[in-house]
Design a protein around this nucleic acid. Structure first.
Length: 577
RNA sequence: GGGCCUGUAGCUCAGUUGGUUAGAGCAGAGCGCUCAUAACGCUUUUGUCGCAGGUUCAAGUCCUGCCGGGCCUACCA
């Protein structure tokens, strides 16, 4: 067996959930969950992992959500951060740090990057016309302006596009334009100055950088290529906004004349928070700057870091183009991403998850009705990797009951209970292993190799299929070894089978830890072991529990979802509740 | 309108650079087992690989057209 001895440092970031509300399962499966499984796997393999996430707190929707809740936006964000943090903990998301894009660290870094970009001639001041709502006392983003479509007469067209005839619009095209926030028609067009990031000047560099990447998902590269080459090619992008809540526009630590009262655009500061959150991690742990810079500065130790980003497909342009443009344009040796894993959408019972219609399942509700392991397993074994995938309660019930309860849970149950009844709650010592044990070990070794390969390639669905096959191998082995009948004539031989099967249980706990960490913990606790080390040597791993080692029969690991319960849940989540 | 993805067994999906009788899980059927959460194991039925052409000794795999599903299209994030 080839042993991987090279330890790497792996930096993992999950797309930042927006602060304005509780996210639904589609958001969870699109970045946080797969990144967590990957992080747990890599830690298990002995790599040094830095796993970062944070809330994305700036922008118009946050301000509006706070106003609706009747609290100051800063307080709203602080409260919602706590809510999201608690839910993330509930799903056992093992972030090394869960930061906030409104942190002082991020303010400083965002201003720093803007300053460097300006120094390098990559920032341009552009004077443009923007719609201002007197009633709302704010500038309105295009899509917050509604009116009648000049093309088709649809009355609820938005300022960026008419949803009815799909025609692209400018807010000033709308007839009887009104604020989508207040409905006020007291709008005026004002001249306002903004900073633009000259992405067009970096197009060729970005293009070459994208071309250099190997093995990136088509979903990732095709979106990047489209933006790079569509029409006149990559366009410059406004990176400031006329808002109150955000990182104030500064050039490094200096004021930026003409930019008073403006903030950076949320999409400019959000990815920088990946870096800033790592700095927040260092601060929170009383470490110096080198601690986080060694992950992000190639001149300070990050040259050997492998950096992987996870995100939904809507995030791809910002991570393949805008953020790299910011990094490259700074002229400083910041770490660029090595691999971008992007996900399609999860749909709910054949339709879209909808916040406004209350359709689908939100993260807090999910934890209220089912344990985290159930969600983790179903969502990851059905992750929308190659195309959108559909959540149905029937599929969820089937997957959980069959895979977790029948295949894995019942295996643990039948082995431990049989042992208890014949040999007591102690690993039996007599008997010797033979061909059957060697055969199943070989089978698991083969599967394990495939499992590891898929995890390293971040092909999560395939990895779960291999893991499941490893569980199945245990049942196959037990069935053919049949200790319950062997016991009648040869108790020693039965003891050897049980000893081996108990060791399989411990192995399964370890191998399953990226996906179902709670069950892993319960099993290891019941088996009375601390050692959760990844098996580099399978034979050694399968003799971890020595003869005479005490264990206990765990409670039912995965209670099945009954048909009645499923129907109940279908009704509860049917929408417009 | 433009771009991209996708259409393989009843369901969910695998099918590497084109190469022998197209695979897995679930569901269905039969048999076995009785340690176990009525759990487990074995065997097994089902496919004009969306449709129509084309290239090739050979196409689920490449090309063209058509039909269906989905996403993106830059000031929501």
């Amino acid at each position: 067996m080839i042993k991987e001895t090279h330890m790497s440092r792996i930096l993992i970031t999950s797309a930042l959930p927006y602060i304005n509300g509780i996210k639904h399962l589609g958001n969870l499966v699109g970045s946080q969950l797969p990144s967590d499984a990957y992080a747990r796997f890599m830690r298990g393999r002995g790599h040094e992992v830095m796993f970062i996430c944070a809330t994305d707190e700036h922008g118009t929707p946050a301000e509006l959500a706070a106003a609706k809740a009747g609290v100051p936006v800063a307080k709203f964000c602080a409260d919602m951060w706590q809510v999201q943090k608690d839910i993330a903990d509930g799903f056992r998301l093992s972030f090394d740090y869960f930061g906030r894009s409104s942190s002082q660290r991020n303010r400083n870094l965002t201003q720093h990057f803007a300053g460097k970009l300006a120094d390098n001639g990559l920032i341009e001041e552009v004077s443009e016309k923007q719609v201002y709502s007197n009633a709302d006392r704010r500038y309105l983003p295009d899509r917050y302006i509604e009116g009648t479509c000049p093309n088709c007469g649809f009355e609820n067209a938005r300022g960026d596009q008419c949803e009815n005839c799909t025609k692209q619009l400018n807010p000033t095209d709308l007839i009887n334009a009104r604020s989508a926030i207040s409905g006020s028609t007291d709008l005026e067009v004002r001249e306002t100055k903004h900073l633009y990031l000259r992405q067009s000047a970096m197009r060729d560099d970005l293009d070459k950088w994208i071309d250099k990447q190997e093995g990136w998902p088509i979903l990732t590269t095709s979106i990047a290529k489209k933006w790079l080459h569509d029409g006149d090619g990559l366009r410059d992008r406004g990176i400031t906004r006329d808002l109150d809540w955000g990182v104030s526009v500064k050039r490094g630590t200096e004021d930026w004349p003409g930019m008073e009262g403006k903030v950076f655009y949320v999409w400019f500061d959000a990815p920088i928070e990946y870096i800033a959150a790592t700095a927040e991690w260092a601060d929170a742990n009383g470490l110096d700057d080198m601690a986080w810079e060694s992950w992000w500065r190639t001149d300070k130790g990050a040259e050997d870091v492998h950096y992987v980003q996870f995100m939904g497909k809507d995030n791809v342009p910002f991570h393949t183009l805008s953020f790299p443009a910011t990094i490259m344009g700074s002229g400083e040796p910041w770490k660029l991403v090595d691999f971008i894993k992007s996900y399609n959408w999860l749909t709910y019972e054949g339709g879209k998850f909808s916040t406004s219609q209350g359709r689908g399942i939100f993260m807090n509700q999910a934890l209220d009705v089912m344990p985290s392991d159930y969600w983790r397993w179903w969502l990851l074994s059905n992750a929308p990797e190659s195309s959108d995938s559909d959540f149905t309660w029937e599929s969820f019930q089937g997957g959980v009951n069959k895979d977790l309860a029948d295949v894995l849970g019942n295996f643990v149950s039948r082995v431990t209970k049989f042992c208890r009844s014949k040999f007591g709650e102690v690993v039996p010592e007599s008997g010797a292993y033979g061909e059957a044990e060697a055969a199943v070990t070989a089978e698991i070794a083969k599967r394990l190799k495939a499992y590891e390969k898929y995890m390293e390639a971040i092909e999560i669905r395939k990895a779960t299929a291999e893991l499941r096959a490893i569980w199945v191998a245990g049942n196959e082995y037990l069935q053919s070894a049949a200790p319950w009948s062997v016991y009648k004539t040869d108790p020693d031989a039965a003891a050897a089978v049980v000893r081996f099967a108990l060791n399989l249980i411990r192995l399964y706990a370890v191998l399953s830890s990226p996906f179902i960490p709670d069950a892993t913990a319960k099993i290891l606790d019941a088996m009375g072991v601390e050692d959760a080390g990844w098996p580099d040597d399978l034979d050694a791993a399968l003799s971890t529990l020595p003869a005479g080692h005490a264990f206990s029969v765990p409670d039912v690991l995965f209670a099945k979802i009954t048909d009645d319960r499923r129907v109940e849940l279908e009704e509860q989540f049917s929408g417009t509740a």
